[in-house]
Write a protein that binds this DNA or RNA. Structure first.
Lengths: 111, 111
DNA sequence: CAGACTGACATAGTCTAACTATGTCAAAAG
DNA sequence: CTTTTGACATAGTTAGACTATGTCAGTCTG
């Protein structure tokens, strides 16, 4: 797994889905956007990003279309499918449930 | 990895360290306590718990002593070492940093 | 009292997400 | 024209959490 210091395992799908739910984006831009919004805390490696995108596509949650970036380069633009939107809701709820649960534990001061 | 539905990958060490930082406990009790405090949201499987405890022990963050439970059964009681306390601080800070970063992303509504 | 259940520890084997390291190619920058 | 950057991609590794199993002792139940 290497250093799990720049991502919480299992949240990458959520981050990707959320990011393209606001606006379809190509892979490279998704990674940049996540880093930027998270104030450079979350670093998405390319070796994690592209496999994740393919995973999500195969699952039917996102779909890809070749297009052009502002810079005039070709790139795959990903957008959410209907199923992807449902999945995003599910993962948002899951993250909420779990992160709150963890916070309960780390904030408790009773043995 | 199976179903990552009852734990956020990579947070088990933190949960364990935090739990025994309040009071030394044996493995079984650690798992029960985490479930209880998290309102049954976090489920720690035995197949995750014991390897994690051994990992932490080998790292020198916790140490084990055989003792007796209230029920009069023998069990390994784990307590934090000094290094473990440092590590707990580190993992707490890490969790804060990362979960806040994720929240930034999931709460953003600007493309 | 025998058998089942629960508490408690443990490990082997599997799965999978994220990592490192690489590679390709095109456009922009030097 | 060569290096850097944008962009996609994959092979191979690692490691943490999972399922499934096993043991053994004490306790509850029919």
């Amino acid at each position: 797994m290497g250093k799990p210091s720049d991502l919480v395992q299992g949240t990458l799908d959520l981050l990707i889905l959320k990011t393209i739910s606001l606006e379809p984006k190509h892979g490279w831009a998704i990674a940049k956007r996540i880093q930027q919004i998270s104030a450079e805390v979350l670093q998405v490696q390319q070796g994690s990003l592209y496999p994740a995108l393919h995973r999500l596509e195969q699952q039917g949650w996102i779909k890809a279309n070749w297009g052009e970036t502002e810079g005039g380069r070709k790139a795959k633009f990903y957008s959410l499918t209907r199923a992807g939107r449902t999945q995003l809701e599910k993962e948002l709820a899951q993250w909420d449930r779990l992160s709150n649960a963890i916070n309960l534990v780390v904030e408790t001061n009773e043995a």
